[in-house]
Each structure stands twice: as C-alpha cells, then as structure tokens.
Design a protein around this nucleic acid. Sequence first.
RNA 1: CCCCUCGUAGUUUAAUGGAUAGAACAUCGGCCUUCUAAGCCGAAUACGAAGGUUCGAUUCCUUCCGAGGGGACCA
Length: 597
Amino acid sequence: MKEQIRKIILEVVGNLWKESGLKKADIEINEAPEKFGDYSTNVAMKLAGIVKKSPMEIAKMIKIRLDKSSARQEDILRLDKPSARRVKDSLAQSQIEKTEVVKPGFINFYFSQEVYKKTLLDIKKAGDKYGFSKLGQGKKVMVEFGQPNTHKAITVGHLKSAVSGLSVVKLFEALGYEVIKANYFGDVGMQVAKSTWGFMQKEKPADFEEWDNDRKMKFVNERYVMGSLAFGDDERIEKEIRQINKDIYNKTDNKNYQQYQKIRDWSIEHQNAVFEKLGISYDRQYPESEVYQEAIKIVKRHQDKIFEKSRGAIIYNGEKDGLNTWVFLTKEGNPTYSAKDLALAVKKFSEYDLDLAIVTTSVEQTDYFKAIIKVLEKIDKSFKGKYKHVPFGWLLMNNKKTSSRMGETIKCVDIISEAMQLAEQKIDIDKEYSLEQKQEIIEKVAMAGLKFLILSHEFHKDINYDPEEFIKLNGFSGPFILYSYVRINSIVKKVGEVDLGNLKDSSFEKSEEKQLASALAMYQDVVLRAGQEIAPHIVCNYLYDLAQKFNSFYEHCSIQKADNEVQKKSRLMLAMATGQVLKNGLELLGIETLEVM
RNA sequence: CCCCUCGUAGUUUAAUGGAUAGAACAUCGGCCUUCUAAGCCGAAUACGAAGGUUCGAUUCCUUCCGAGGGGACCA
C-alpha cells in the first residue's frame, strides 16, 4: 500500500527529487493521525529547505498535479508533468479517493471504499497467511534464543529470551524467510560442577525418584546455590568442585560424571517441557559441550593472524579495532565462552547454508558480541553482515537485578503459575465453563498476558516489574486482544458465517467502520516494518489499536440490528476479517487465540 | 579512566526530524431489559538541564546532571 503511494508521488516530483540528491526510499509515507486521513507524506516539507519555498506552497502545487496534471498554473517548481491519465490511473490503482493539503505542509491521502472491500476480500483469501510478504523468499536465517543452563533453574531471563526469540522467528517467517530455531545451552563449566557437588552432599528425599522434573529441578537448583556459596568459603570444597569439573570435561567414568549425567538428563527434559509450554520447539540444539573441542582448534588455527599470546593466554586484542580485548584460551589452554561462541558461529554456517544468523542475548553481552563478530569476519570475509546480535534488556524485580548465585532469581515456572493464578481469579464465575474449557482459558490468558508484557516493550530496554501489578489482564494487554477476538467469534456463531461475494453493494459509512477497515488495510505494512526492524512491540501497538477500534465498532455499529441485510453482512465480513488479522498478529507474538473466555 | 544503553504524566510506557507528544494502570465522572462490561464514552496529569544544527528537535550534535551495563583467564 505504501509502495503504491510512493510511486504516485514519484510521478510528480521525481526529477526534482533526484536533483535534490534524495533517494526513492526518502519519500516517507506514514500512517496519518485519525482526522488526517489514512496515509500522509511530508515530501513538500522535505523539499522546502532545498527549493527555498514554503512547504505549504509546494504541497499545494503537488496536489494540483495529483488532482489534474494539466492545470495551467505557473510552475515555479518545475515539477514533472506526467500525463493526466497516468496520475489518474495511479491514484485509481491505489484507490485513493482524495488528497488534501494541511499545515504545516502535509499531503494526506484518503482511502476509497474500494480499499476496504479489497482488503476484506484479500484477508478472506489469504487467511492465516494474510500479512506475509516475499522479502526473504529463498533465504535462510537461524535464530538462536533461550540459552538456559543445565543443572540450574530456568529463570525469568530465559523466559524473556525464549518469548522474544520466538517472536523474532515468527516475524522472519512472515517476511518469507526459512527460519531455523536454535538453542545453545550450557552443560559444562564451573556452575555445572558446583551444582553436581551440591547435589551429592545431601541425601535426597526418599521419594525423590517419583518427583516430576519440575520438582527435581527445584531441588537441584537449591543444591546449586548451596554449592555456589560453599565454593567461595572453603578451599577443600573448592578443590573437590574443580575435580568434578575436570571429570566432566574428561568424561571420566566415575560417580561424579554419572551424577552429572543424571542431572543433565532431568534438566534437558525439564527445559524441553518448559519451552514446549511456551510454544517453542527447536530445530537444532547445541550443547556447549559439543563446541568445546572445536573451540580450541579454531583458535589455534588462527593463532598468529588474529589472536596473540599475552600473559600466558591466547587473546584477541580488540584495542586496535576500537573494541575490548577478550581472552579466548586460558593459560591452561581451556576455551573461554568467547572461543566457544566463535566455534558455534562457524558451526552454524557450515551445517546450514545460512544467509543470516541472529543471536539474541541480554544487553550485557553487547560489546562482547561486537568482538565475536569482528573476529568472525577476520576468519572469513564472507561472514560480513551475516552475523547479527540482538540484545534485550533485563527483567528487573523492584529495579534490581537478581542473582542466581544467591538463589534470588525468579523461576520461569513460578512466574507462569503466578500468571495462571491471576487468570483464574479473573474468570467470570457466572459463566459455566467445563473443566477443560476453564483450564484452556487460564493457560491461554496467562500466556497472552506474559508474552504481551514482554514483547510490548522495546527489546533493548529493561522491564521493571512490580510483582503486585505485574501481568495485566485488561487495558494494554494480551488478554484484551484475546477478548476482542472472542467477541468476534461469538458474533459469528450467533449470526452465522457469511460470504458477500465481491462485496460490491457494501459500503462503510460510519467512522468506526472506516477506521477499522483502514487499520486492516495497513496490517501488511506493519508486519513488514516490525520484521525489518526486529521489533515485535510494533505489532503489539498495532494489535491493541486494532482491538480498540473493533471494540468501538462493536459498541456503535450493531450487526444484529443493522439497518438492512447488506449492511448486516458487510459488518459481519468486517468483523470476521478483524478476527483473522487479530489471530495472525497474535501468532507473530507466539500467542494462541481461544474461542471463549 | 575508556566504551555502550537509557532519562517522557503518580506508575509502566509509545512516537523512521513533522500535525494538538499517543496509550495503559491508578484517580474522578457516565453507560449492562439490547451481538461476552476482561468492554465503551468522557475528565485530569508528562519530553532530566542548557546550548547548537534545521522551515521544524522528545528524536540529530556538544556539555552537564542522574540510572544501569561492559572493559583479561566466570557466561
């Protein structure tokens, strides 16, 4: 839609635009505020500084050209003179009903009824694929997200990563990319050793083997905290833990390694269950242990060209590239996380023929990944621009970051059950749902609340959450959108599905109808922007606005009590199309719809 | 000391250099005999400070103030 309007503008100002050194992409088409039509452009204001005329004057001249290009007005701008027919055709093609010039120099575009009808028909035809584009067709992208550690609890941080990552995946799919979902999880290292040590210090409860994995992992995490605290206090214990660490690396066939393996198995089962609950199934799982050997090799291979020796370690000296210096191999010859991340990156490209690899992590790793990417490009120029780090902010509790070492972290499973409790309280007791229905409502509403909260903030910003008023179930929230969807579903059930054919008799005259239909027409542009900017919060804002417009429509334009049969059917089509778009948009956020609530 | 984020109503936040800075929660006031009131309609309240660039700055640049993060063998 935007692209078509851009073309029309170009018909008129093309030459002048080029002379001014501006590019086609500089022609901005934006969604206009409600009372200023549907789309608007500021080209006149952009030209003002260059041609030294007032923006209003320029805008008026452009408008004359748009309205009837043969106008006999003195043209001090030397605008292009496309034939009247070409402009008329362009306008007709993009179904712009009228244009308007408004201070300080905006040119506004109003959709015609044709846009509304075409949009409804497009939505009906494309269904779940409405909003998809072909931008990434034939291209492959891998998104790495989640990244928990075994032998430790999954925390809110991982929850944020998982939810954000899933949304990135969905956005790229909507852009037409083939997406590979990857997880990189820590299953080696001191923290794993600490946890294993802690576990072996205390008799486990008699019925331990009968516990489910959630409960087992809670116990394991307690033992991890204990081991972690003991590590700093006692040299003898430190020695024991380091020994366990060695046994794990060497896969020594002893009690330590066997215990480690057992906990690792529970952890992975637990992880998969938690991720499944969040709607995530990975295509490729990379345990840290898998890249360990490769990490050493890759550093040694490039030892003198990219890396250098310093204080006994092998480092990448980032200072000369304006970055920090990072250790890749310790003086004992062990690979650090940087070496492992590097090996992982190379492995990803060699396993899949990727056009792009995205890694999402928390913001603290921003500088670190700059270095990793730099080194990667030094290894092979073809990696340039293909490895992308997307940082996201913390989920803070009362403005403070929590420490996993001290056992302060909020567990992912706890936060989910907290959300479910809230959702349960909200269920209308007058409505008699079956037990299964009730359970479905609780789960989906809770997930919608959680996911929307996480995704509605800009990625790189921290989310400060107050446990008291944390998950919102009304207002700017996921459940609000679900609720709107449920209302639509309920109407359709009552009135019955309808097909108006080509909709040729229908007309949307009330402002609530027009605004709703306009918003539907803009959905594709929104998805495109959200995908290109990797910004799901754009989708959140759009969906909330759309749901609000629907609720307003619902309040002011009755379907059952429409004036006549055509209006009734037109409105029902509008409602059904809205339902489809809400569903598609929620899908981009990884939120499932439901039929009643 | 160096580098990176971020400062918007009481709170949580939005706005590719543009129109009256948009919402939500909380507060106050209306609307359920009428398609699900988790809703609708309305009121009130905000760009950390000072300069600069621009027709136009919350947005870009500089300085200051404030918060957080990163900077050698932990991830």
